Amino acid sequence: MWKFTIRRILIMIPQIILLSVLIFILAKMMPGDALSGMVDPNTSHETLEKIREDLGWNDPWPVQYANWAKDLIQGDLGQSFFYKMPVTELIGQRLINTFWLSLVTLILIYLISIPLGIISGRYNNTWADQLITGYTYIGFATPLFIFGLVMLWIFGYYFGWFPTGGSVEPGMEPGTFSYVLSKLKHLLLPAFSLALIGTVGTVQYLRNEIIDTKQRDFIITARAKGAPESRVYNRHILRNSLLPIAAFFGYEITGLIGGTIFIEMIYSYPGMGQLFMESIVSRDYSVSTALVLLYGIAAILGALISDIVLSIVDPRIRIK
């Protein structure tokens, strides 16, 4: 177990290095730079070139990457030209909102998908199974940004049950009970919107696992020996079907990365996703490259978590 984990961590290191190289190259290939559209139009070309020279933007790419990577190792993500502040501090202000949005969404995904998957798999080919399967088909076919807009219009504007933007009501004092309630109220609708779409894959996977497990030889043998149906289902079918779901925890984290970007833009939720889109529009490349790198590392860590959990569930996949 420990050998497998250490080996996967060692494999992750060159993946992160390659990711950083690709991100840096793609950022340099984008048109313009952070000064484009952010300086006085009357500024002379010579002055702009001197600024670029002082910032090291005219150095060869390998030199620029080496300097950028050295700063990354030291925890320096650069300076935001749009917000006029360190990128590390800027991301830190938004990270907590995205963290709580992702955490609440993950909890909702499992609270919704596991009961629905169990009902659909245990009572397959019934009206309940057909309703749940229909819900998953609609979820697969509905783009997240369309679903988010519909949820925002219905529950935010039409009924007015939830706020339509922001993460907390203005004027709230941090640390108070009313502040926490306001944060939760602003969080629930974006989290539900993301979770209802995110559950469909888990529901279908759990349903198929239960149906497949019910037809295996050891289940038929247990029933032939006269074991009660409740014991067969709870101790054999359900337990064996739920174990693989745990292995998808890391991939759920990876799937939330793209989802939070859309949801935060739709609900004007001040998180990393909204910051990412704003940095692209404003050509704030130091912010956008740092966020893409963090998203990529999160995806790699999600795959690592899934592999470790899956190796615990099924030791046969461990590398010898």
Rank of each mutant, 00 (worst) to 15 (best):
Y157R: 12
Y158E: 03
Y158F: 15
Y158W: 15
F159E: 00
G160W: 15
W161H: 05
W161T: 02
W161D: 01
T164I: 14
T164E: 02
S167C: 02
V168P: 02
V168H: 09
P170E: 07
P170I: 13
G171I: 06
M172Q: 13
M172D: 02
F177Q: 08
F177K: 08
F177D: 05
V180M: 14
V180W: 15
V180K: 10
L184G: 05
H186Q: 09
L187N: 04
L188Q: 07
P190N: 01
A191G: 07
L196M: 14
T199I: 13
V200E: 05
V200I: 07
G201S: 12
G201W: 03
T202D: 04
Y205H: 07
N208R: 03
N208L: 04
N208G: 08
D212C: 00
T213M: 14
T213R: 12
T213S: 00
K214I: 10
Q215M: 13
R216E: 12
R216Q: 13
I220Q: 13
T221C: 03
A222N: 08
A222Y: 08
K225Q: 10
A227L: 13
S230E: 10
S230P: 00
R231I: 05
N234I: 07
N234A: 04
R235H: 12
H236S: 02
I237A: 00
I237T: 05
I237S: 01
L238M: 13
L238Y: 15
R239A: 08
S241T: 04
L242H: 12
L242E: 13
L242N: 11
A246S: 09
A247M: 06
A247K: 01
F248Y: 06
F248E: 06
Y251L: 15
Y251P: 14
I253V: 13
I253F: 06
T254G: 15
T254A: 15
G255W: 04
G258N: 10
G258M: 12
T260W: 02
I261E: 01
I261A: 03
F262N: 05
M265P: 02
M265I: 10
I266G: 12
Y267H: 05
Y267V: 05
Y269T: 08
P270F: 01
G271H: 03
G271C: 04
M272D: 01
Q274F: 10
Q274P: 03
F276E: 01
F276S: 06
E278A: 14
S279P: 02
S279G: 08
S279Q: 07
V281L: 13
V281S: 07
Y285V: 05
